[in-house]
Amino acid sequence: MIYEKEKRYIVPFDDVPSPRAEMPEISVDERRGNFDEVETGFPESVAVTEAKRCLSCRRCLGCALCWAECGVEAIDFDMPDEVLELEFDDVIITRGQDNAFSAIDPAWGYGTYADVITDLQFERMLSPTGPTDGRVVSPLDGEIPARLAVIQTEPEGDENHLLSSVVLGVNESILALDRTEGLKITLISPLSPDFKERFLADAEKIAGLSMVEGKAGSVQRSGEGDPLTVTYSHEGADHTETFDLVVLLTKPVLSSETQALSKKLDKPVQ
């Protein structure tokens, strides 16, 4: 199949939102003691209105405008798929570049606020060949942030994940601070013992980065145009602080296809 990562872009059509049609039913009183069909079916007008709600999801329209514009005739709609039947002595299954992560709690505001992004998105933002040429900006309004928070979204369990995600968060902070003038970053995580032992001393030396050993609680915006408010607990007390951009440290998960393949061949994922 042709893969698309699990983030969908849908054009904000004029007919959104519009409610879904409800199936008419006979009343409960009419049902007792008989087996008459409960659902009576859509009347025609309801069916047509409902069908018109369909977004006709489609990527390439097959309109061939690109083909018409291409001066070197590189577009070839008939380019076939190739089928290869191959034999191997061994198979190694790896995570690939799905970059799927476990469901993010709505409390973190991801998907609601455009200026809450994942560590994976932040990584692309920091790449010199990325969508912002490596510049740290808020996807909400394109402004360069002055205060940035990196927060751990799954602070419980799995020491390996806690370690690698915080190391990623620190590395991303190093790159972000290097190329953003006057940026202050706060990294909030319970910090695993392993991290504290191996990396904390070095991380604390990074100018502009404050390592906060604590647990973030929520990300909210009090009103339009306001910065994001992050609540977190640190040294037994609750804190709130405002930020221009929030980066969530996510927990990676394997795609269902990778899991199925691993199960089928009885091979672990490396």
Binding site: V11, F13, L55, S56, R58, G62, F77
Partner: peptide, 18 residues
């Protein structure tokens, strides 16, 4: 279209609206 998909009027309208 180039893939041999015949559009309904509704699908065409969605493409235009997009």
């Amino acid at each position: 279209n180039m893939y041999g998909e015949v559009f309904t009027q509704h699908e065409f309208n969605r493409a235009i609206d997009m």
